[in-house]
Simulated assay, not measured.
Amino acid sequence: MNGRSKIRNIKELAELAGVSTGTVSRALAGSHLISLKTRERIQALADEHNFRPNALARNLRTQRTGAIGVLIPLGHETGQHMSDPFFITMLGLLADALTERGYDLLLSRVIPTDDLWLERMTSSGRVDGVIVIGQSDQSATIDAVAAHYHPLVVWGGYSTGQTHCSVGSDNRLGGDLAASHLIAQGCERIAFFGDPKAQEIAHRLDGCRDAMARAGLLDQLTVLPAHLVAEAAHPDIASFLGHADQRPQGIVAASDVIAMSALRVLAEQGLSVPEDMRVIGYDGLAMSEQTVPRLTTISQDLNEGAGHLVDMLLRRIAGEETDSVVMEPRLIVRMSG
């Protein structure tokens, strides 16, 4: 075989290198069982002859696909899309982290019509593990799969006794921080905008109630189950705030997107923020710095969260046990609150 001939498979590369096919396979995979000098020599021969190992064949041998499933279940908000600012931010962070670890990302937006939506992905043989973004109203389904499928990690709130491994902020504390700040600014009548059918949003509402109860103002808290989609949230918020007799002095929004819809409605109704009403969002998205006025928000540190999700999933793929991570949220005070 001369220096210009094309190598078609690992066997031919092994013959050229004068080693076994197993040595070549391990060397190209970067195994430290093979000396660095041998790995570099075999890689140089492969590069010289433009040889690339067949990924499918390698995956069949290792029983790995090289792909991670990322699912977004929308049981409580079927009109939400992957273009949502929160999803775009989280997906970008996950894609970067997974790519750096050598994995592809298989993305799916799911409108649950039965209890098998997660089982179909985990049993498909298409992925090595699954990340679910948000429990929505599907916690029971996620727990049922997590009981027998180990490489599964979920972004979302933590509830005592849950089976699945989750990463997320302390949503109850976040809601408490938001309401406590509004109370400290003199707000007595506070409205919570968000649909508590979703677990994370329910926890944020519980935190608001905690703060209001401590201040003796629980009867002054009202709840508008606003949509997470801006276009859908706008008319409900406009109707709610259109009645002067029931207007709150402050709003805790379950997301930055809902908070931005509230800012738009208040501007349309000729009300000033924060003079006439204070508004606090939740998520800490980059775009919250670009609103007018700049949005006060509860930050979840999505960059740290995405890192935890990927790290814990890969550890679970390797057979490790991992505990859920509850990150501490942070109040970012800007001009709206």
Rank of each mutant, 00 (worst) to 15 (best):
P248C: 06
A29S: 14
L152I: 00
A27Y: 01
I298C: 07
A318I: 03
S336C: 03
L173G: 02
V252W: 00
R294G: 14
I142L: 10
L93R: 13
H203F: 15
S324L: 05
H234Y: 03
S108Y: 08
G307P: 08
H181C: 00
P248W: 01
H308I: 04
P112L: 06
G337K: 03
N59Y: 13
A238P: 04
G3C: 05
V325F: 08
A147M: 11
T65L: 12
L224H: 00
L221F: 00
F193M: 00
K37N: 09
P73L: 09
N54P: 10
E304G: 07
A57T: 09
E289N: 13
L309G: 04
V19H: 03
D176P: 00
E321F: 03
R58N: 15
W155A: 15
G207L: 10
A254V: 01
I131K: 02
K6N: 04
S124V: 01
G242K: 02
T163V: 15
T122Y: 01
G194S: 00
A230K: 11
L302I: 13
V167C: 03
P329F: 06
I183Y: 09
C187P: 10
D301W: 10
E15G: 06
L91G: 08
D128R: 02
Y282G: 00
V325H: 08
M327R: 15
W155F: 13
G18F: 03
F86R: 12
C187V: 10
L271R: 12
G175N: 02
T23F: 04
R126I: 06
Q63C: 11
L331A: 13
G242M: 01
L173R: 11
E12K: 13
T38K: 11
G284H: 06
G242A: 02
L91S: 10
L228Y: 05
